[in-house]
């Protein structure tokens, strides 16, 4: 894919920077414009994904898990299991804008930190767009079969262990195919990279009445206001908040909200 100016959502960039609607002086405006141009110049957008069947082994213990066929990958935790309800398949996905952006961010953080943080935010928005493009491609593939995809879910969301980052990197052969690797602390390098899991729902009946379901969801949550509050608090404390696909849309990977 190719990143374009139009894809770099300025509002998003400002949101990452904690902007709350005050006046932006021309030289700050210019900083943002310049950073966007730099990202377009330096980004090397690329992504890979593969589709897998999944199965849920009969449980002997309380712990829920989902196994991904043909791999050693085992998805654990309440949240991913709920997220993949009604799915018989999933996609593993990785998107990146490459290492050159990181180099420039390092340079700017040393020499002009204001430009550094803006560039960093632009990079986050850029990789989000690349991920989005991959997701759209997947969606097209899946819709053609009369199925639906779930939202993206990434390691570190909710109670899905961040350590799965490494497993996914191995399975997708990310180091060779995209130049992406996983650090000791389970973060991706280059930093502007994303791994994600997208479920394929072959029970579109549920989706047809998506709005109703959401409405029901909301009502259910109203009854459990305490619960919702607890979840919200968790989100506020979550280190993934800023790049969370759910949080941005006012939801939570722990359900509800």
């Amino acid at each position: 894919m190719e990143l374009t100016r139009a894809l770099l959502n300025r509002e998003e960039i400002l949101r990452y920077l904690g902007y709350r609607g005050t006046e932006i002086l021309p030289h700050t405006e210019k900083l943002i414009e310049d950073s966007m141009s730099q990202i377009l110049e330096l980004a090397r957008p690329a992504y890979v994904y593969r589709r897998y069947s999944i199965w849920r082994p009969a449980e002997r213990t309380e712990e829920k898990r989902i196994l991904v066929k043909g791999t050693n990958l085992c998805l654990t935790g309440e949240d991913i299991c709920r997220h993949l309800e009604g799915c018989a398949e999933l996609y593993l996905l990785c998107a990146t804008i490459g290492a050159f952006v990181d180099r420039q961010i390092r340079l700017k953080m040393m020499t002009d930190p204001a430009a550094g943080v803006v560039l960093d935010s632009c990079g986050s928005v850029a990789v989000e767009q690349v991920t989005e493009a991959a997701e759209q491609e997947i969606e097209k593939e899946v819709t053609a079969e009369g199925k639906q995809i779930t939202w993206r879910f990434s390691p570190g969301y909710g109670d899905l262990p961040l350590e799965l980052q490494q497993e996914i990197a191995d399975i997708l052969d990310l180091h060779r195919r995209l130049g992406v690797s996983v650090s000791e602390d389970m973060l991706l390098a280059p930093s502007k990279s994303v791994t994600a899991i997208i479920g394929v729902m072959d029970t579109p009946v549920w989706m047809e009445s998506e709005k109703e379901a959401e409405k029901a969801d909301r009502e259910a949550n109203k009854e459990k206001e305490v619960d919702t509050k607890r979840i919200q608090e968790k989100c506020e404390r979550c280190s993934n908040r800023e790049r969370c696909n759910f949080y941005v849309k006012g939801k939570s990977c722990r359900g509800g909200r």
Binding site: R20, T22, A115
Partner: peptide, 12 residues
């Protein structure tokens, strides 16, 4: 919240 991060850093 009247200034955001890049402005703080530009001032710095």
């Amino acid at each position: 919240g009247r200034l955001f991060l890049p402005q703080l850093l530009q001032s710095a």
